[in-house]
Amino acid sequence: MILEMKNIEKHFDDLEILKGISMGVDSGEVVSIIGPSGSGKSTLLRCATFLETIDGGEILYMGKEAAHTDANGKVVYVHHKELREFRSYYGLVFQQFNLFPHYNVLQNLTDAPIEVQHRSKDEAEETAMELLRKMGIEDKAKAYPYQLSGGQQQRVAIARALAMKPEILFFDEPTSALDPELTGEVLKVIRQLADEKMTMVVVTHEMAFAKAVSNRVIFMAGGVIVEQGDPAQVFDDPKEERTKQFLRVFER
């Protein structure tokens, strides 16, 4: 297992957002998370990437514990230095890209490998150029983010995450901030990564994409996993009424 989350609980003030979510992701698996707005999908990814601290449960990467709940019900994270090592296991692609505007594309891809992972400049640049070729934007290496279209920016963001050589990549609605005609080019590279057996968890509203690319679909609503399974089963033959209701909205 690359990632294991057990009984994850999260609340903001008095509002319970995640009510005991458990999910595991195996190497090479592509998991799609779908569900209505406000169901806690982003919060789940933010807990997995330590952008939010959980209020209950356990998080393990590569079988190693990053956070657990002790006998008193208190959540304990490993020391922040160790936590930073866990960060090398995963990458996160944001809805809003969050590229570094003062760095050109190449610098966006090489700064963290050099500064955080202490890799040599030459190696980092070689890896970066290879990734840019894969993303079909090698001619943009010296461009600044503001000079790129949304679709190109998101592909740079994916490459930036991959440049860290993570074990697993999280996507939070990677195409939601894009014009419809630009979503295709981003979905295409994610599909390509899936073909290469990159382990991924994708929160998305692109149902056709989720159905075509993922090995497993998780339907979340109201802070719990309502249903999960093979995409063909969840999409074509959902068992839960809540799932049927959600999917009906999308069929129209």
Binding site: S88, G91, F94, V116
Partner: peptide, 22 residues
């Protein structure tokens, strides 16, 4: 924007690196 801090944090930058570089 908070997204700049979050992107840096996920990439493993320390607090000092995030401030000085990003």
């Amino acid at each position: 924007p908070v997204g700049q801090y979050e992107a840096a944090e996920v990439l493993g930058y320390t607090k000092t690196q995030t401030f000085m570089r990003i």
